[in-house]
Amino acid sequence: MKRIYLGAEAEILLHHMLDVEVIVKRRVSKSYRNPHLDRKINERRTLHEATMMKRAREAGVCTPFIYHINPKRAVIIMEYINLPTYIDIINSSSEDIFQISQDVGKAVGKLHNNQIIHGDLTPSNILVGKEICLIDFSLSSYSSDIEKMGEDLCVFYNALRSSIPQKYASLFENFKQGYLEEREEAADKVFHRLSEILKRGRYVRRGFTEV
């Protein structure tokens, strides 16, 4: 098994199973935590993440297919989707990045229509192929709260703004268009809340108004 990423919470391994490449996501045990608490947290989060991925898939959003879950060992084995991330695509700029941004908006809109909050919508968690695939549901939740949906878009907006300062505004406009198409009138409330969230002192300097 080859480790391709190590986060604060889990490691991502690339593995061959019967000639198929698969992703193994394993939550790492933390020695600072009480062992009982450690097992409980990792078990619960593993189950939760797998459940949310399944729900997203049922809502019509592409997510990696889950082959196997072992909550006791905090392991999810899933499909390896070998596609460039949204950030790669924008940097290569050979594709129609505005159409792709719209498609990303549609995918997120679909999630929100089904009360699924992704929780970590950074450009590197979005894969671009024939359709848009979303990965890493470890911070996801189930909610119909406008605030949560606004926060979801806020994470995406801020990540976009810091990684592509020249083009973020037009890309985000296209993202919003796709989101609007998918959600229709429900979208306006979320956009309105997003602009409120962006004005809060916590996230940016006071007096900041965009979007």
Binding site: G7, A8, E9, K30, Y32, R33, N34, L37, I41
Partner: peptide, 17 residues
């Protein structure tokens, strides 16, 4: 055990980020 684990976890996340 519970409250301090929460705090140490968010620190680790910030350090990774």
């Amino acid at each position: 055990e519970t409250a301090f684990s929460m705090l140490v976890e968010v620190c680790e996340r910030a350090m990774a980020y």
